[in-house]
Design a protein around this nucleic acid. Sequence first.
RNA 1: GCCGGGGUGGCCGAGUGGCCAAAGGCGGCAGACUCAAGAUCUGCUCUCGCAGGAGUUCCCAGGUUCAAAUCCUGGCCCCGGCACCA
Length: 974
Amino acid sequence: MARMEDRAAQRWQEAWARAGLTTAYRDPDRAKFFALIAYPGASGFLHVGHLRSYAYMDALHRYHRARGEAVLFPFGLHVSGIPTVAFARRVKARDPVIVQTLEDAGVPPAVWPTLEDPAAAARFLGEEYRRVLRRIGALVDERTYVTTIDEDYQQFVRWQMRTLHAAGEVVQGSYFASVCPVCGPLAVDPSETDLERGGDAEILRYVLVPFRLEDGRVLLAATLRPETIYGVTNLWLAPGEELVVWHHGSGEYLVARPGGERLVEQHGGHLGHAVPAAELVGRPVRVPLLDRPVPVRASRLVDPAIGTGVVMSVPAHAPADAAALAELPAAEREGVPPPIVLLEIPSDAKLSSAEGALVAGEGTPAERALRATGAKSLADTVALDAATERLYRIEFVRGRMTVPPLAGVSVRDARERVEQQLTERAGALALQEFSKPVICRNGHAVVIRKVTDQWFLRYSDPEWKARTRELAGRIATWPPEYGRELPGIVEWFLDRPCARKGPWLGTPLPMDPAWIVEPIADSTFYMAYFVVRRFVSSGRIAPGQLSDAFFDYVFRGQGAGEPSVPAALQEEVRSEFLYWYPLDINMGGHEHKSVHFPVFLFAHVRLVEPRLQPRQIYVNGWITGSSGAKLSKKEVSSKGGRIPPIDGALERWGPDALRLYYVHAASPSADVEWSSEAVDSARARLDEIERLVRESRGSGAGPPELDAWLLSRMHRVLVRVRAGFDATDLRPVAEEVYVGVPSLLRRYYARGGVPGDATDRVGRAWTLLLGPITPHLAEEVGAGRFPSLVALERFPDPADFAESTDAETREEYLDRVEADLRAVQRSAREPGASADVAFFIAAPWKAAVERWMRELLARGETPTVRAVMDRAAQHAEMAAARAAIPRYVQRVGPLLRSEPDAGPPALEEHDVLREAEGYLARRFGFTSVAVYREEEAGPHDPLGRRERSRPGRPAFYLLPPAAGAAASGRPPDR
RNA sequence: GCCGGGGUGGCCGAGUGGCCAAAGGCGGCAGACUCAAGAUCUGCUCUCGCAGGAGUUCCCAGGUUCAAAUCCUGGCCCCGGCACCA
């Protein structure tokens, strides 16, 4: 069945394409809507998670089209950088995970070898993505399709880089890049597309402090806390370690070999002969800045692979140093000065209880931390690491220096100052290092190398930044919180490398073609290029004609344009650009919040005039796996995976159930854990809706008041649906269209309505409402009801459906009555067993009394019995009720406060209930329904229930069935 | 530490002063339909109550108010980013 439906879906998709919906056109008489999804990267096959944003975006485009706007929904593929190269490499290696996805996607093994070439893989994946988008019914403009390695796109990127360069925003400087000494530069990235492991490594920045031996050679100690120089009591080397001499300038530095190699990468120089640690242990070195002698000692705490293999010992503040000293034989401890406390936590610092426990008690901070965490020796690595991490953190955030030159200075500031002094006066150096080993795909250790001619985009440029921050502060965002964050992100944005050297896909940097423009930098302004691309793909402009002059003219209105392009054509492109721009929405996942979206704003600020700046950024959540993490390839698999691959999902549920699921599952910016069950239920809901829409056609005639109610409610549905779409908030839209309307119709039928003119009108409008989110279903149920395609129809207008306050008031009143009946039935011993009901409509005086009481409340007075009675005395018609008023005032008084001040409904309760008798009998299984006015109900109300009646809330008396009839327990039915 | 969010019923998730014991969904229970199952439909799903009511709830503790999930103060905890740090 699913397969059949899938075929039907395909038929509609073809019909849309034939109707020209996959080609945008400009219409100067109409408003336009231009919105897109941030380029997906071509790293493999799409899975069900990727389609969420497309479902959203397509629904928005379809809505805007139905509102009569010209829409442009472009699609292109980002293949720059490493992911596509990595994909091709994994195909070549026949990586089992990749092989599985190839099989799932139905790619015949004969094709696999062609995917071993990155450019071919990129083209292949692009076609694959387009096929999937068609299959879910997304109406993307076919002529915009482009990949970032197409010749015309590269022309565009070259223009962009040259323009930024000319504006002084592309500069060269030095940079520490991650490099495999064998394979070349690569990206250290958690996705590890290029790495075997270590993708989550961070780059640490050590300060290398020179400690001079009496013979002039220097031990270079690596530290992350240079301010602790004031507390150094000795140096540590690893026992048995072999140091090497690093010759740099005129100096001879002693360091462990791994650190020496890093130093050569980052500072040059060369490594000389080896020096055993044993030769150095016991000798004195001088602490720079302080010129104080301290001894060298050996301890197993030192890992020669980390830093320089030379460690400053600060036993007062480093738990590990304290533990190491304690392990030293007494003889060796001789000559090591006592711990020096160099900072303290001010007594008035606000500490959490955990922090307080760590720094409480006697002894040095390190001793206290050891005590608090229970770390006994260097062997307790877990406890020791905890002690170190927690103490460092508290001291850094809260600590104040106590040693003379810096007394009172915060540790944060002291660190900066000490580093500066060490660098200027003592010749300290910096060393960058990964926090954990990083291994490339070919098994080599990755290093950090200093690159002196790195190309940067100068995002720190104050003028550029200021203008971008201004845009960031006013651009619309979804969710709105992101808009509050965005200016800060822009503010802190640093210069970014914008090109790399390496075997990557992308555009050579025009100023220096040995460099490839980096993947973030080549996709900041491409939204504009989509407009031009439509002329290239239709053959009207050749890639070779896309000169700088052409782009200057089209995007910036500068110069005379490209001579080889006819002026009229060039003018057409320019108008087209000015028509579609500014971009209405750029939509992308969280991962774009701190990089892509900011640089997208930067680029626009620099390249186009203010009126063309983008209007909205839309951050959508992910579909996540069971752990809440992004879907992994392992989870998405036909074999053993919990989540079906895309084609499988489309076959199983059809495109619309998926689309509804995406839109309805959660707030768009929230992550949602994938749930097949939820898609099942979306599927079931659509089946029910299809039935209801089909049933809505008929020739019956229902009660006219009921029809009025239905149409009036539909009016409100339309108002809310349009508001939701206009605010790009689709979840409430889905709520109305897929939950609200069905329950509306069900209620209509239950109340005695029949398919006829009213339901037909609702059915037609509803079909149109279904269009944006579930377009295939809309076409199915719309066939024969509309002249051609539903997708070509105008969105329904609330004005087409008359509001009727009377009708709605009446139904609300009945709702209220039903709720009361149910409440009583619920609390009764035998629920649902009532046989007869008698209603008592409140006497008219009650409405007057309630009105008076409200007036008193409104004046801030308490509605006392006396006040009401005084007033009643002036009204002759109230005389008969005098005895009942006090009790009524007392009962109703407290209730009025919490009830809305709407007053009693404007309707004739008696008539409404009489008309609803049949309905209530069916609904509650009553054998008879009677309605009386309170003042004439005496004989029918042996228990005096009629007194309970209030205006708008009739009292009633439920009569249990006669003993014999009770057993039947006739259930309610519609 | 800074910036931005957040803590709601078995679960997900709406809700920012008053028909809120709190939408909707999921899950659960009961019934209708069915030979049966599924689907669908109806009702219920904090506690108590043989009459439409009462009690106690929206992380915790205070406060403002006639009225607080919603506002204020303090606390605990969680998430994202940056910074910082092993």
